[in-house]
Write a protein that binds this DNA or RNA. Structure first.
Lengths: 151, 151
DNA sequence: TCGGTATAGTTGCATTTGCAACCACAAAGC
DNA sequence: GCTTTGTGGTTGCAAATGCAACTATACCGA
């Protein structure tokens, strides 16, 4: 029984996007857990810091990139800091502000996580598309986020 | 600074997918909240039941369709039942089991939510794609989920 | 028919989220 | 300078999540 709703291609694509996303995230998280690695969002923090100049970012900046609310970011950084993966550093130019700085331990964890993560991306996602299809999909999705191709 | 990582089209598409998803869900939720409507997942329950035969589904079945863990589903149904939108009904064939049944109030809420939801889908998602693109994207995403086109 | 195993659903507890209130500092206007 | 308003970040509390343990029923095999 093809639902009437899903005859609208837009709505159908939307529904698929929701479902795919849930499934993929679950799968990635499972791969990380099985390898006794921390949650995916820890990786996001680590990689953002790693690629940032001086491996540091203002908290609000990090929050924006990760699409994370302030309070959530505070607590996420708390957890990472407790594990010695990042640290907070005062900001000279704006004394309200703080930097999150990647530590060597944080960098090491990022390097341990990446192979597992990459493998999961491949198994769950990449292997289903040609390079050309992946490029097209990335370009389409960029319309939704305003992300620039290179970012 | 185009990150080296993102030169792999697969990884780039993956990153875009994550970002788009977060942004879109946030936007939809915001639209619902502004219209003083309940969370998106309530809609998912209501629409699943609405389209199910006799507007009822076994809990485990509903959980599978929504990709929701058992315990989460229990609690989600608790909330909806407390609002009178669904009710639990014993299953004659398997006395361990329960049905979730859509109530008239639940159906009414689904109908109130849909226009807002549809509008949000259009603004955040649909308007950025042609019908043909949407069809293609849906088909691609179906590779990830094993979902059949008509489902 | 009995014992063991699997399945449907719930519950308790620890962790995480979301929201609003809050503190500290910065910036803009008088 | 002083006050008002805005911004960066944290905290408290209520709600939602994830996981493991638990109850009740079904199923399977000797």
């Amino acid at each position: 029984m093809p639902s009437r709703l899903l005859t609208d291609p837009t709505v159908r694509a939307w529904a698929r996007l929701l479902k795919a996303q849930k499934l993929l995230l679950e799968g990635v998280q499972q791969a990380l857990t099985e390898a006794e690695l921390p949650p995916l969002e820890w990786y996001d923090v680590l990689i953002e810091l790693k690629t940032a100049p001086e491996q540091r970012l203002r908290l609000f900046d990090l929050g924006e990139r990760m699409l994370l609310s302030r309070s959530n970011l505070t607590r996420l950084i708390d957890r990472l800091e407790k594990e010695g993966l990042v640290l907070r550093d005062n900001c000279a130019e704006d004394r309200r502000g703080l930097y999150a700085v990647l530590t060597p331990a944080g960098l090491a964890l990022q390097k341990r996580m990446w192979p597992v993560y990459q493998q999961a991306i491949h198994m769950l996602f990449g292997q289903h598309f040609s390079a050309e299809e992946a490029r097209t999909m990335a370009a389409w999705l960029e319309r939704l986020t305003g992300t620039e191709p290179g970012e």
